[in-house]
Design a protein around this nucleic acid. Structure first.
Lengths: 360, 360
DNA sequence: TGAATTAATTAACGCGCGTTAATTCAGCCT
DNA sequence: AGGCTGAATTAACGCGCGTTAATTAATTCA
């Protein structure tokens, strides 16, 4: 192992003090350095290939230049999350512009408080982005009290932490209005996850909301919970079709889950969209190629990620952004997995639907 | 901001010296501490909620207790990688057992040397796992020379770094033998990425190898390069089907890319597997639900990830594992996207195939 | 020319911890 | 009683850097 090069080495090599080196390399303002001296330092640094020690710097300056991405989910579930790469890509991209590093950690349910606080108190990270925390996350209030810079991706109503999210409820409602407008009435719903997760609960609300708006009675028996992955979507849809063969459409609150649902639908002999319409949620990169092209709600993942970063950075710099939550807009992307309901009832359905719309 | 609790506080509270606190909490061996003293320290630490400062510890002990996961790919491509979550899940899981943190970084092409060395020299990380580096990665030799603990996920023949991978070439060949056995002869190939990436080059080799084994002339015009994502798979397959409508099967070297390919196949009016067989590669979690169930090569992603971690940890502890590369086995998972070639030529094809097999 | 500024540079301290070498203390043997 | 041994504890240094306060050199002004 070769000798490590320190700022002292650079100082010696340039014939100045270590302090001067620090001033030059960090471009400290309010300090004037003779141009010639500055160049000597810069050259020495380059020649020696000097790289400041991150730990020492963090210790002295009391900031790690690192933020953490915390996921409240077991690795088992992380592994099947096709939405994650988009978020990750967005964060990595943004974080780099701030010359900041990204630490990733998953948090064991029940260990939230400990993990959150330890990471921050250990000064391993300066701030954190919380991904899909659960509604019952006990660690959020601890973060508030400890005044740790944090941003939630998603919205937890009970928490006052900053957050970036889309309007899950309204977006889901939009998906359902689309199906209703096409004449469907027997519409199943498969959640993206347990309703302990905020996004799942909110999307389900949107499902109910649309029915209510249309003056239709919501049918809770048409809702089945999935569990992040495609397999659970397959199982859920199979169950749904068995129990309620009269269904002509479904809203699946995650494209990843929808993959399994599509499989189950096709396996049952139904054709998409002729016999059965399906709307997803997320618009993952492959959605355009799922089945005949999946109609879905486009979630601006990259935007959510970068906005979260920017917001966090502002908070870490001591700013107190006016609004505690940023809501980005999601939109319906109509592809080929949804079609007008066939059959006699169609015409009258559409008519009543349009009538209802005007009242909203 | 509250006062930070240091080991000095714990020492005061327990009525011992800071050194003793360090000995107790780090469980230093070769040092004996009176049980009563030990308990006093432990209690004090707990009562005060002491969390050691990571930077200070890293600085003093000269190890960061952090490893880095470096990806040589732009965030744009990272975002569409459905394989990544599995790797990530595996690493997160394993890393936790070592009480080590994970830093993630993407490396700009052309910036490899700088990024690799800086991260290590800054002692931000103790070692690194390199994901899908390119064959032309200029930074690898720099890592070797600097003797930085590193493990490559994948295999770069020109590098002597430790690596964990499957036998991409042989695995691809297995996929092709499967298609050949089913009687197919007109088999296209869509790579998973540019052949500048080692896995892509190796899988393509396997494609050619199988033809050679079977005494068939490889047809380079049936090979199209894709680019990690589904869209590129869709485009590639469309091109392939247009150019060579006689094709009855295809090997797609990535399930993620295969999603797009399947879409293109179905859109062309062909039925899978009746009219067209397709074999993927990776076996991502959703593969069982792609199309009618995608026949694919199962890559033990989780295993690769955890083995990489374990190996890296050993290297970081100064061990010099005997073998420089670990090769895990991948296996063919036959689902419903492949079927026996229909038509007259079938019988004779199979016969000649079997005859060939015996010679291998 | 000497005093008063201002510009340029540095000595010295502290961040919180790990660790070596030194110290204290109790128990034991001669 | 004195010396010795080992167990238990601590003083003190260094990790590499940021930063304040002090020092020196250069410049201006009366």
């Amino acid at each position: 192992m070769k000798k490590r090069i320190t700022s002292q080495d650079v100082a010696d090599h340039a014939g100045v003090s270590r302090t001067t080196v620090s001033f030059v390399l960090n471009d400290v303002k309010g300090i004037s350095i003779r141009p010639e001296t500055r160049n000597r330092v810069l050259n020495a640094s380059r020649e020696l290939g000097y790289v400041p020690n991150a730990s020492a710097r963090a210790l002295a300056s009391n900031q790690a230049n690192t933020i953490g991405l915390l996921m409240t989910r077991a690795p088992h579930y992380i592994a099947t999350d096709t939405f994650l790469p988009q978020i990750l890509g967005g964060i990595l991209d943004t974080v780099k512009t701030y010359r900041t590093s990204l630490l990733i950690e998953w948090v064991e349910p029940g260990q939230q408080v400990e993990t959150y606080l330890e990471l921050a108190q250990a000064k391993h990270i300066d701030g954190m982005i919380l991904m899909v925390p659960r509604l019952d996350d006990s660690g959020l209030s601890a973060i508030e009290q400890a005044e740790i810079p944090a941003v939630i991706m998603g919205k937890i109503p009970s928490s006052k932490l900053y957050s970036v999210d889309i309007d899950n409820r309204e977006s889901a409602a939009i998906a359902l209005r689309h199906l209703l407008e096409l004449g469907h009435r027997n519409i199943g719903c498969i959640t993206n996850a347990s309703t302990l997760y905020s996004s799942a609960a909110q999307r389900l609300e949107g499902y109910y909301l649309a029915f209510e708006e249309a003056g239709l009675a919501p049918r809770t028996e048409l809702v089945v919970e999935a569990d992040f992955n495609s397999q659970s979507g397959y199982d859920a849809m199979k169950k749904l079709l068995n129990r309620n063969p009269e269904l002509t459409a479904a809203f699946v609150a995650s494209d990843n889950v929808a993959v399994g649902a599509i499989h189950a639908i096709q396996e049952s002999g139904r054709n998409i969209p002729d016999d059965f319409s399906i709307v997803g949620f997320d618009d993952i990169p492959m959605s355009a190629h799922l089945g005949p092209g999946l109609t879905t709600i486009h979630v601006p993942a990259r935007e959510i990620a970068s906005q979260s970063c920017h917001l966090l950075m502002r908070i870490m710099q001591g700013e107190a952004p006016e609004s505690r939550s940023i809501t980005l807009s999601a939109e319906l992307i109509v592809r080929n997995s949804t079609a007008v309901l066939r059959g006699d009832a169609y015409q009258s359905n559409v008519v009543s639907m349009l009538a209802n719309q005007n009242n909203v």
